[in-house]
Design a protein around this nucleic acid. Structure first.
Lengths: 213, 213
DNA sequence: ATATATTTGTGTTTTAGAACATAGTTCTAC
DNA sequence: GTAGAACTATGTTCTAAAACACAAATATAT
């Protein structure tokens, strides 16, 4: 998507940064400077709301772009990002990206497309998180985690190691409710749990629970 | 932002369409074809959720762009749009816009900026709608309506004529709760109401209620 | 202009989910 | 390897907001 000159510039301006598990990548209210590309690991984008209660807005997998929205909107970050697990991130100055965009229509359309997809997801998420009940929201989150990070070799275990609290923050509920509802799903033979490892037994039923809310 | 040739093309492809009060402008699942520019009137972008319960996602004022996100994301609309009041909308084929974008970097950055701003709003809205209580959400909506549509000549009455149901759908609550909470605000001398006309008496207090949730 | 439908207003009941409490378990850091 | 912290689990209580019910007031259509 870039020409030779652009690629050269990119190479000389890109920096690779490593983050440890739970390390913060950027903070709310900070000024956005770089486009970030997640090369390795898993990242959560979150925002703290009423009484400091945290809500996970998006989760990232390799190779996805993040951290660029606020720069384009000319505002400080309204979210923060941190590493679910050890990560490698490539940082590219947004000024350079913006400069590319002025002359590279395909690159511009690429960013327009990413933003448009994310906005569509956000629009749907508003309705899902506000209208679905706890069971529906948790079912949706489990399916969403499966879609994003895939399954382990057994073809059933979701490939992420998440605390109940993160699962709760992703699904807009208290940690207690995430734990309780997860237990219910186990009793109903929809999933099995082994510590933080979650195995999906009856995906069809999860879909149904998510659908009816 | 456009050159002479682009402006010519635009003129020969733009169509003006009128919509009556409550008329639908586009529907969920429909295929997006046109960029829409609201010239006159007020528009709501909404989505129906669990059990057909409707949630207002965005509201538009002249002169704002809408209807383009789904085209860029290469997906059908996930929302619908309808006219709060009689509207004039200019429709421009998205194919033409996309063609412009490939060579016009400034126009591309304009769309990137709009999408980025809207995505930031959506990210914040997710947290506000899920975490704030009824009073906080309604206070926020009233302030938001004031910001969007302004005040009448008296410098206090919000310049929109909204049913309680729409106010509820904007604030993620039942119509009963919107009515009740509005009455409470009147008793607390924060606002006055005359039918659908809402006058803000104590804006500072509204801000405070919205802030604390 | 009048009948019918829709919207508004209020009281009452019900319930989903938060808040709180406490104990057992598993990480993590030194 | 152990101490302390953080996480998981489950029971109990409390409350905000939905659901329901029914007038009264407006709006809309013929």
């Amino acid at each position: 998507m870039l020409n030779a000159a652009e690629r050269d510039q990119l190479r000389s301006n890109a920096r690779f940064v490593h983050f440890k598990k739970n390390e913060l990548i950027y903070l709310e209210d900070e000024n956005p400077k770089d486009l970030m590309i997640l090369f390795k690991g898993k990242v959560k984008i979150f925002r703290s709301g009423v009484g400091g209660r945290s809500q996970i807005i998006r989760i990232m997998r390799p190779i996805q772009f993040f951290g660029y929205r606020a720069y384009f909107a000319r505002e400080p970050y309204v979210t923060a990002a941190s590493a679910f697990e050890a990560c490698t991130v490539c940082k590219i100055p947004m000024e350079l990206i913006e400069q590319f965009l002025r002359t590279n229509g395909e690159l511009a359309l690429f960013f327009i497309r990413m933003l448009s997809i994310d906005l569509g997801i956000a629009d749907q998420r508003v309705v899902n998180l506000t209208q679905k009940h706890v069971r529906g929201r948790l079912a949706e989150s489990l399916l969403f985690l499966k879609e994003t990070y895939g399954l382990e070799e057994d073809g059933a275990t979701i490939n992420i190691y998440l605390a109940r609290e993160d699962l709760a923050n992703l699904s807009n509920m208290t940690t207690s409710n995430a734990i309780r509802t997860l237990s219910n799903f186990v009793n109903e033979r929809i999933i099995t749990i082994d510590g933080r490892k979650i195995k999906i037994i009856d995906e069809e039923r999860l879909h149904k629970i998510s659908r009816i809310g």
